[in-house]
Every structure is written in C-alpha cells, then in structure tokens.
C-alpha cells in the first residue's frame, strides 16, 4: 500500500513535468497540441543518442534533449503553428494531428522500429526505507523533474521574459502595448512547452524503452493530467501528475496491471463530465 503510494508519487512527479509542457502551450497559445507526445519521443531519442555516442547519462542528456527540442519547437511554431493561431479550432486540430503523424513516421524512417534502451549503473539499484523499496532510476527521475518544475516556476514568476509569457497568455494586445513581441513570445512558449516534455522523456529513459511510437503510451496520460489540473495551469499540471501517478500505481493493487490505463480513462471521462474546469480551483 505505502509502496504503491511512493511508486505513484515518484512516477507522478515526472508525469507532472511532461504534462506541464502541454499545459503551458495551451495556456499561452490556446492551441491543443495533439503532437505533444511526439516531442517526448524526440527528447528520448536525443538522450539515447547522447548516451550511445557521448556516453552521457540520461539525467545529463536530458539537458541536451531540452535544448534540442526547444530549438525544434521554436521553429515548428514560427513555421507552422503560428499560421493557425487565429484559425478555427478544426484547423488547429488538423495541423497538430498531421504533425503527430509526420514526426512519428519520420522517426520510424530515421531510427527504425526497434525498441532502444540505455544501461546505466544504477538501473537495478535502490534504497530501502523500512518496508519500502525506492528504485534509484525512479527516484532520480523524480528529483530531476521537481528541480525543473521549480526552475520553471521561478522563471515564469521572476524573469522578464517569463513574466511576458504570462502577460501574453492573459492579454496579447496589452502585452504588445508594453513592448512585448508576441510572435517571439509564442515561439518561446511553444519551444519551452515541448522542451519540458522532452526533458521528462529523457529522465525516464533508464526505466522506459524508446521507440517511434512511444508517444502513444503518453498521450492519454498527458491529457488526463492536464484535464485534472485544469487546462492552462502549470501548478495544476504538476499536482495532476502526482494524482495520476498515484492512481495508476494504486490501481495495480486491485486490478490486473493491464487495466491500469482503464482507471485513467474512467477518471478522465469523469472529470470532463463533472468538472471540466479542472479539480484544482483557481490554480
């Protein structure tokens, strides 16, 4: 029981960071990015190649994933998403779903369909706290996620460009009138959003294998987290991540492991039906 709770929190922290990226993109641009999980996949590949070629541990490779995917995201925003910002939602859905298909198939062509994993010295290690066993890769991924979340929070609250991102999310016209370049800020927010998710992908590499279709495993999870926390709320996404992690992990106590995503679906639908504004009020 406690074991499942701890496992869930460790998983959930990472889910939180992964979903924060999606939430940030929606909150600032108002676009639901269906291709978001593909950037998680890209982040995992960057970290995998960094491990393979440069011998970088994925915990450090994650920084590289963040930077590379940020650049990709910035370009995708300036060349593609920017064109549909004011378009009807249907056009936005077509574009991001199309992007999903393109990225996934490009990855298949470039990397092949095999599953790739890393081997790191701490992979099967862990810490024992009484009856509870804490797997080292889960713990490290959780710590990395929490550190990134804290840095993101500080950036959005305290820095000039972070504050400008919040301002553009709340009132683009007023932001322009105080001298904020909204196009640049949108690209920054999109880049940052996909980079956060890529970082989350990189730090879980020691316990999840990467393949071009890995994004599919995370899509529903990501949307459940964001819907739980309220679409557009960064703090909510983090809390939602931990809730989802705990539910997923606890459900394996009662149901067979194949059904753990079923519980997520049920929660996802229940939240949409009963409390579409998210569970966390005003976050």
């Amino acid at each position: 029981m406690f074991q499942a709770l701890v496992d869930g929190i460790l998983l959930g922290g990472v889910y939180g960071v992964i979903a924060t990226g999606l939430s940030l993109v929606f909150g600032v641009l108002g676009v639901v990015n269906f291709a978001h999980a593909e950037f998680l996949m890209l982040g995992m590949y960057v970290a995998w190649f960094a491990w393979r070629w440069l011998g970088l541990d994925p915990m450090l490779g994650s920084v590289l994933s963040f930077i590379v995917v940020f650049a990709v995201g910035y370009l995708v925003q300036r060349t593609l998403i920017e064109r549909v910002l004011k378009a009807p939602p249907a056009a936005q859905v077509f574009l991001t779903v199309g992007l999903l298909i393109v990225i996934e198939n490009a990855a298949l062509m470039a990397f092949g369909s095999e599953f790739r994993s890393v081997s790191v010295p701490y992979q099967v290690e862990g810490y024992r706290l009484g009856d509870i066993f804490i797997g080292a890769p889960y713990l490290y991924a959780f710590i990395a996620a929490i550190i990134l979340a804290a840095v993101l929070w500080l950036y959005l609250e305290r820095s000039w460009t972070g504050r400008a991102i919040r301002a553009v999310a709340q009132d683009p016209m007023a932001s322009t009138l105080v001298g904020v370049d909204t196009r640049r800020t949108y690209a920054l927010a999109f880049g940052l959003g996909v980079a956060l998710t890529a970082f989350g992908g990189a730090v879980i590499l020691p316990y999840i294998t990467v393949s071009p279709t890995v994004g599919g495993q995370f899509v529903v999870l990501m949307f459940t987290v964001v819907v739980l926390g309220g679409l557009g709320s960064v703090a909510g996404a983090l809390a939602g991540g931990i809730v989802v992690g705990v539910v997923q992990s606890m459900s394996t106590l009662v149901f067979p492991i194949q059904l753990q995503n079923l519980c997520l679906f049920v929660i996802f639908i229940a939240v949409l039906a009963l409390r579409p504004q998210g569970l966390i009020k005003g976050a």
Binding site: R163, R166, A167, Q170, D171, M173, A174, L177
Partner: peptide, 8 residues
C-alpha cells in the same frame, strides 16, 4: 477597457 493583466 483598461486591459490589466487579470491574473497578475
């Protein structure tokens, strides 16, 4: 219409 940033 003032246009303050409401959640700041």
């Amino acid at each position: 219409g003032r246009h303050v940033f409401p959640r700041m």
